[in-house]
Structures are given as structure tokens and as C-alpha cells.
Design a protein around this nucleic acid. Structure first.
Lengths: 200, 200
DNA sequence: ACTTATCCGGCACGCGTGTGCCGTTTAGCT
DNA sequence: AGCTAAACGGCACACGCGTGCCGGATAAGT
């Protein structure tokens, strides 16, 4: 065979002493898949043992592929964040500055409610992803700042609001027990609050 | 002798088998006092050991007077809640329905930021005080509902908002990292969002 | 088929938590 | 002064967590 180059893949095992084994690759994918589901359901608070149980492997297997719990959570959360960044870019291109921001805001709230991993990543519950600099979260911050400042220049959002305010409002919307109509109303309330004050 | 019934004290002995000892009362007060400070600083997450250390007693002494951590936290939180209820009544009597609600809202946010025990009690972090029915939290709910509905009847707050929405907005304001001016702005944003939409 | 590095399961360790318990001390009444 | 129950300190237990580690299994290359 002599397969010249075996995709080293994975976050580790760059040394070409031996390629990654097939079952290892399968298990890693399975763990990641179940971690997605588990974190989405219960947030970053789920235990490694629970994820291992769901994936049908032992805890050792989980920590092998993701040496620490934070590494696993980041692998899951960054996927979602990257997806959000793409959505932000798409919305920015598609819609005018005024509605683009509010559309993205609503998207963030809905995603956070549906996927607790997103909510925990945004609010910093469990782990502080901001700390470990990553291109994904940097891009997200940039996208958010861009959306916000464009909306402000368009006069759709009060000028003194900053990204932290928006993040806090999202946290507030998430805090609302999840009822479809109630969530939509909370988004309305938050967005209305962000608009410039009528006159004064 | 012939101590007909020896109540091994249980919580504060009501049965007069023996009155509460003076040092016991002093220690209990000291524990409660330090628990106030500790919970205010770090929220419901502080450990029993930490509170015992601050009070200069052992953990056994803490759990004697407050058999469970939840009991201790409730003793602290309910004090604060009762104080908030009194403030609500005072504000209700002093101010017109429109501004009374917003004044109380701002008070809740400021209190929650200054005293993490209040914030944790309101958001249900740590313990669910709603579960264990208490007159204090019942009164608080009633006061909040009254303030809200009066403001709604006065046309100062959108009619479809409910108490859970307000609670979520408070949680959002708390989530904002504590900067004086930022907090004031967050309160503005939240209150503006609660106002009726300007027709259109 | 044989070898070997990879992978795995599962156990155990350390940490921190809340809580139960026991032997001792001490306050307060007679 | 003497007695007794209240109160104490402090240890140890059970729990759940993340993580390190080791001996056995096994896929992959020869």
C-alpha cells in the first residue's frame, strides 16, 4: 500500500510514526457527536461521565481525544460560534444595517435557547472562552461589533450602547423560561429598549 | 428533673425543656451576620466552611443553628426580600403608578448588584426559593404583580408583559459587568423596552 | 502470521462539597 | 457546689467532579 501521506488529522498525533487508527477516529467522532447533543441539552454543566455514557465509551476514551473538559466544550462551542459568524456575514450582506442587527439579535437568542452550549459560551458560564484567544470568537466579536456600530450609524440603535449591553440583554432573554410567544415578546422588548429614545 | 420531654433542640427550641443558651444565641447571630456578608459578596455559592471560618466557629455550629445550607441561605435571603417588600409598599404609596414601577425596577437591579444574595434569590440560582412557599416571597410576588399591573393600567408598560419578563430583564441587567454608568444605561434600556410601542 | 504502537476500559486519586456524629466543654438552674 | 442538657469543635463520611494511569485488547503494517 504505502499510502504516502496519511492525513495526520486530529488535534494531536502529528508525528507520522503511526497514523490514527480507524476505531479511534470513529470513537472521536462519536464522542463529539454526543457531546454536541449533551451540551445542547444541559449546557456546559454535563459531566464527562455522562457524555462518555451516551457515547458508549469510557471516560478515559473521552479524555484521550479531548484531554480536558474545556477542550471538549470548546470543540463543540467553536463549531457553533463559527456557524453564527457565517450567519452574521450572510445577514450583513442580505439586509440593511437597521434590520440586520435586530435579525442577528433574534437569531442569537433563538439559538441560545435551542442550544444551551451557545448560551453558556456567550454568557461565559462554565468556561471563559474569551480568555483563550481563538479566531472564531474573535471573528464573532468583530461581527457583533460591526453589526452594532452599523446599526448605530443608521440611527436604529442608541449610540451609547455597547457589545456588553447587547450580550447582557441576550442573557436576559435566555433567562426567560422558554415559551415560544414569550421568547418572541422578550426579543421585542429588548430590541425596543435598544432603539434610540424617541425625543426627550 | 423528670424532664418529661427532652426536645434535643431541633431548630430553635420552642419546647421549654431548656431555654436557648446565651452563647448559642450569640453564635447564631454571629453566623447569620457573617452569612449575610459572605452571601452578599459571592452569592449562594459560598461554602458552609467559609462562612464558619468567617464567623470564627466550626461547621458543626453552623449546621446546628441552620440544619442545611438552604435553610441558612433562606434565612438571609428572606430578610432581604422582606426589606424589598417594604420598599415596594413605600414606593407604591409615595409615587404614581407609572414611575413607581420603574423606580422599583431600578431598585431591584441596584440591590441585586450590590448584594449577590438578592440576585441569586431572584434568579433562582443555587436554590429555588419559589418552591418552598414563604409569606415573604409570596408578598414579594404580589407586590411585583401589583406594581406591574398598575403601571400597565396607567399605560406606562406594555400590556402583554408579565412578571417573568420583568424578572428576566432584571437578570439581564445583573449580567452586565458592574460599572456605575453602564448599569444605569442598562436600566434605561430595559425600562424603555417595557414601555408600550409608540403605535405605528 | 507476527509484531507493535495505538487505543481502550476501568479503576483510583485528589479536590471540594454538604452533612452526620461523637466526645468534650460549658452555661445555667437548683 | 453540683448536675444536666445545650452547645461546641472537629473529624469522617458520602457524593460528584475532572483527571492520571495501567494492563489488556486490537487494528495496521510487515
Amino acid at each position: 500500500m504505502a499510502p504516502s501521506d496519511r492525513t495526520p488529522d486530529a488535534l494531536h498525533a502529528d508525528a507520522p510514526g503511526r497514523p490514527q487508527r480507524a476505531d479511534g477516529r470513529r470513537n472521536q467522532a462519536r464522542v463529539l457527536e454526543e457531546a454536541f447533543a449533551a451540551f445542547a441539552e444541559h449546557g456546559a454543566a454535563v459531566s464527562i461521565r455522562e457524555i462518555a455514557r451516551r457515547a458508549g465509551v469510557s471516560t478515559g476514551t473521552v479524555t484521550r481525544h479531548y484531554p480536558t473538559k474545556e477542550a471538549l466544550f470548546r470543540a463543540v462551542a467553536l463549531h457553533r460560534i463559527e456557524h453564527l459568524v457565517r450567519s452574521a456575514e450572510e445577514i450583513t450582506a442580505r439586509e440593511d444595517p437597521a434590520t440586520a442587527f435586530f435579525t442577528f439579535f433574534a437569531l442569537l437568542v433563538r439559538q441560545s435557547a435551542a442550544d444551551h452550549a451557545v448560551g453558556d459560551a456567550l454568557t461565559g458560564a462554565g468556561f471563559d472562552l474569551q480568555a483563550a484567544a481563538s479566531t472564531a470568537i474573535h471573528d464573532f466579536g468583530a461581527a457583533m461589533a460591526g453589526l452594532l456600530s452599523r446599526a448605530q450609524r443608521a440611527g436604529a440603535v442608541r449610540g451609547d450602547a455597547d457589545a456588553a449591553d447587547v450580550k447582557a440583554l441576550i442573557a436576559g432573554c435566555i433567562a426567560r423560561p422558554d415559551d415560544g410567544t414569550a421568547q418572541r415578546r422578550m426579543i421585542e422588548i429588548a430590541c425596543d429598549g435598544l432603539r434610540p429614545r424617541p425625543a426627550s
